[in-house]
Design a protein around this nucleic acid. Structure first.
Length: 350
DNA sequence: CCCAAATGGTAGGAAAGGTG
DNA sequence: CACCTTTCCTACCATTTGGG
């Protein structure tokens, strides 16, 4: 996106801001906002709010989940258009968004700083602080050892101030443009999930129906498999390969080991010695990876005691077997079609 | 600074189950 | 009966959010 240039620029004097249009003013924060600091003593208000993912959201005050204060009377009252800052734990947490604009009156923990915009458009300030936050400028403020900041610590924060009508225009522009971008992100997300489905369908089709659309078909005799090409055989797993388990524990992994070490997760560890030297397909035999984690490997390797090793293939290609298993096995396992002895009865077409 | 609680897992011990 | 396979249970772990 390109922006039209202003007639002239000035150095803002702020390292992380750079040049700004000449007619913008530079003001310290305290000239533009006041600290709110309004106690909820006497439970004046009970609309509980919290700062989450850069938004002020409503929380159920009667929900007892999570950490609760002894009393909500110690909370502070905030008003619409206030900006809430979470300036605690600056050294520890360098990820979460630290400022947000309040949309409705309510109460929020007094550990946060609440400020009330006066000489600045609230939505403009909200976007400006989000930009400051994303440059991580708050983390370097106050010097090394200080872990949290109060209003006194941020009140001299320099703010670049366009004229009022320009502030409103900028905030409106950002509302519009970010909404457009969010919509595009959502669209791409949809597309990605469609493509993933497509990928799966392609593999599934190839390993169960082959590549020739005109090949005569026959009933495989297996309900979850349906029809397969007439010239394919259906064989039980145990007749086309050897099935075994590994022997090592996760603790046996060595950082710079010479051989791959297959465990129950998708991550391939390293190990110093090997137990197998062959072509094999491996999968998790226990835990979260059952039916999901697959590897195809040829060479020297070792496997975790609860990893299954399919090897010594007879009449089936390793790559085909790998594609077939990773595509079809999860469906059978996860649908719970066969609870017992499923390993030996699982059918493979070839 | 440090911690609590929720969440969503992974890894390991141990023993029961199967099998030649 | 010895040995390999499978299951169950639980300890442990990382991350996220936010409170004292």
């Amino acid at each position: 996106m390109s922006f039209p240039a202003y007639p002239s620029y000035q150095d803002s004097g702020i390292e992380w801001v750079g040049d700004v249009p000449s007619h913008w003013l530079r003001q310290p924060l305290f000239a533009l906002v006041a600290e709110r600091d309004e106690s909820n003593e006497g439970m004046i208000e009970n609309n509980l709010l919290s700062l989450s993912y850069g938004r002020i959201v409503r929380k159920d005050i009667d929900n007892n989940d999570g950490l609760l204060p002894a009393s909500f009377e110690t909370y502070q009252i905030v008003e619409p258009d206030d900006i809430v800052w979470r300036l605690t734990d600056l050294q520890n947490d360098q990820r979460s968004l630290r400022t947000a604009i309040v949309r409705e009156r309510g109460i929020i923990t007094s550990a946060y700083l609440a400020t009330q915009p006066r000489g600045i458009a609230p939505h403009y300030l909200s976007y400006l602080l989000r930009a400051y936050d994303l440059t991580k400028v708050f983390y370097s403020m106050g010097g090394g050892l200080r872990q949290s900041m109060k209003f006194a610590d941020v009140k001299r924060l320099p703010v670049m101030l366009p004229p009022a009508n320009e502030q409103v225009a900028i905030a409106a522009f950002l509302d519009r443009e970010t909404a457009k971008i969010d919509a595009l992100i959502e669209e791409q997300r949809c597309l990605i999930s469609l493509l993933k489905e497509k990928r799966q369908a392609v593999i599934s089709h190839a390993v169960t129906e082959g590549l020739d659309p005109h090949a005569p078909m026959k009933d495989s005799g297996i309900d979850w498999l349906g029809e397969v090409p007439a010239h394919w055989d259906v064989k039980r797993l145990r007749f086309i390969c050897h099935i075994g388990t590994g022997d090592a524990d996760t603790a046996d992994a060595v950082d710079d080991g010479a051989y791959p070490f297959f465990v129950r997760s998708p991550v391939i560890e390293r190990i110093g010695d090997y137990s197998h030297d062959c072509e094999a397909v491996l999968t998790a035999g226990d835990g979260a990876g059952v039916g999901k984690v697959y590897h195809h490997f040829t060479g020297k390797f070792r496997a975790h005691q609860r990893v299954y090793i399919f090897s010594r293939f007879e009449g089936v290609h390793g790559r085909f077997f790998y594609a077939y298993m990773s595509e079809m096995f999860a469906k059978v396992v996860l649908e719970g079609v066969r609870r017992q002895r499923q390993w030996h009865r699982f059918e493979v077409v070839n």
